[in-house]
């Protein structure tokens, strides 16, 4: 799956959870999780569950860290890497 396709699917999930309008642009660097993030910890878990279901992956505890999940771009790269895992 291409990075763009992953990104589009993540965007759809974020829009659904964030109640964002379809035409509202989501910045690549939109901060999702963390102290300045758009999501609180419960919404963050909801996003993780949605990502796992959407891409058929399992996010391990030790992978829940800023470089993997902080922004849309981080999350896209992280999922791309997970999908490439053997």
């Amino acid at each position: 799956m291409s990075r763009n396709a992953i990104r589009r699917r993540i965007e759809a999930l974020v829009r659904r959870l964030y109640n964002a309008e379809e035409d509202e642009p989501l910045s690549e660097e939109l901060v999702l999780l963390g102290e300045d993030g758009s999501f609180d910890s419960v919404a963050a878990l909801q996003l993780l569950l949605a990502v796992e279901e959407e891409f058929g992956i399992v996010v391990q505890d030790e992978e829940i860290r800023p470089e993997n999940l902080k922004s849309l771009s981080c999350l896209t790269r992280f999922i791309e890497g997970k999908l490439c895992e053997p």
Binding site: L33, G34, E35, G37, D40, S41, V42, A44, L45, L48, L49, V59, D61, I64, R65, P66
Partner: peptide, 13 residues
């Protein structure tokens, strides 16, 4: 921090 709380919620799950 918030990252820790997300990990805790994941463990709850």
């Amino acid at each position: 921090d918030r990252w820790h709380r997300v990990r805790v919620l994941n463990r709850v799950r």
